[in-house]
């Protein structure tokens, strides 16, 4: 199949494509899941971003 006789290489070749398709499927199914809109999440993140910009300033 596909000009590849060694089943281990063929398996790796197929798994590369299948795992990419799995990633695509997962991304599509969960496209809008996991968004965080709660106010305390927002303020927690703002606090973290302040710290992060300090790190960036030092760098």
């Amino acid at each position: 199949m596909l000009g590849i006789n060694d089943p281990w290489i063929l398996l790796a070749y197929m798994l590369c494509i299948l795992s990419t398709l799995a990633c695509v499927g997962y991304g599509i199914c969960n496209w809008n899941k996991g968004a965080e809109n709660e106010p305390d999440e927002f303020s927690e993140e703002a606090k973290w971003e302040k710290g992060e910009s300090k790190v960036e300033e030092i760098l």
Binding site: G27, W31, K33, E41, E45
Partner: peptide, 26 residues
């Protein structure tokens, strides 16, 4: 991971990350 805004972005990144890595190392 820490700089990501929410889990939603991680979910979305799985999609394009998979394609991107296949097209780079593959």
């Amino acid at each position: 991971f820490m700089t990501v805004k929410s889990n939603r972005e991680l979910n979305r990144a799985v999609l394009s990350g998979g394609i991107f890595i296949l097209m780079m190392t593959g």
